Simulated assay, not measured.
Amino acid sequence: MTDLELWPADGARRWQLITDAVMGGVSRGRVVADLVADRPAIRMRGAVSTDNNGGFIQIALDLAAPDAVLDGSGFTGLALDVAGNGERYGVHLRTPDVGRPQQSWRQGFVATPQWQTVLLPFAQFVPHRIDCALDPARLRRIGLVAIGREFDADLSVARLALYGSGKA
């Protein structure tokens, strides 16, 4: 099995912080490059608040250039090397089929304090406010999200890859 490294192999790809402030919420966060347990990582930290109908902070990464897609159809899913504070986080995937900010395909995981590789099969992503199935051949963006309840977020990611290609 050969993985396809998506990040950090391509230094041109940058994580972007998005909070519920885009819709009037008051959650706050930051994203920084950090050294976490001796591993270079991107770290999202902040406080999720449900005040003002809010409730999320997110780091997002474009998987393809504007008006392009990443073809993940030859792979089983996503692999993330993550560490955190023991809280549950979400992975939100977007494709060109997504027309509204709240639409995505979602799957969750718990980020333990120790580094771990989390495998997220495409078949287990659940549609959220969208009526079509996830098409891994049309991936555009991934978001790592602290969402839905008040808590302090601390999530680090050191690697993002497609896994399960079946190629030698």
Rank of each mutant, 00 (worst) to 15 (best):
A153D: 07
Q116L: 13
S27T: 05
Q114F: 11
R100E: 14
R138L: 13
L80E: 04
W105E: 02
Q58V: 06
Q103E: 15
P113V: 08
A12S: 13
Q124K: 11
A133S: 12
R13T: 06
Q107E: 13
I57Q: 01
P96N: 06
D20C: 01
D51K: 08
A9K: 12
G86Q: 09
A153E: 03
P113M: 11
Y163C: 09
V69F: 05
F151Q: 11
V98G: 00
G46D: 05
P96T: 07
A153G: 10
G55S: 07
L120C: 11
T95V: 12
G143C: 12
L93P: 00
V91W: 01
G84H: 06
V26F: 04
W115Q: 08
T76P: 06
R88K: 15
V98Q: 03
R149P: 03
V31E: 00
G46V: 07
R141F: 04
I147V: 15
T76W: 00
G74L: 12
G108P: 01
D3G: 04
V82N: 03
G74M: 08
D97L: 11
T95A: 14
G24W: 05
W105G: 02
L155M: 08
R45Q: 15
Q16C: 10
A123L: 12
T112I: 09
L80I: 14
Q107D: 12
D38F: 07
P66H: 03
R43C: 01
G84I: 08
V36S: 05
D71V: 09
V118D: 07
P66T: 01
M44S: 01
R88W: 03
L119G: 00
A68L: 15
G166H: 07
P127N: 13
R100F: 11
K167M: 11
A68H: 15
D51M: 06
D97K: 07
A33S: 15
E150C: 08
L4C: 03
P66E: 06
R43M: 05
A33Q: 14
F109Q: 04
I59G: 07
R141V: 00
W115N: 11
M44N: 02
V82H: 00
P101Q: 10
D152P: 09
R159V: 03
V98L: 04
Q58K: 14
Y89P: 04
A12T: 13
E150G: 09
L80K: 07
A111G: 09
D135G: 01
R39N: 11
V32E: 12
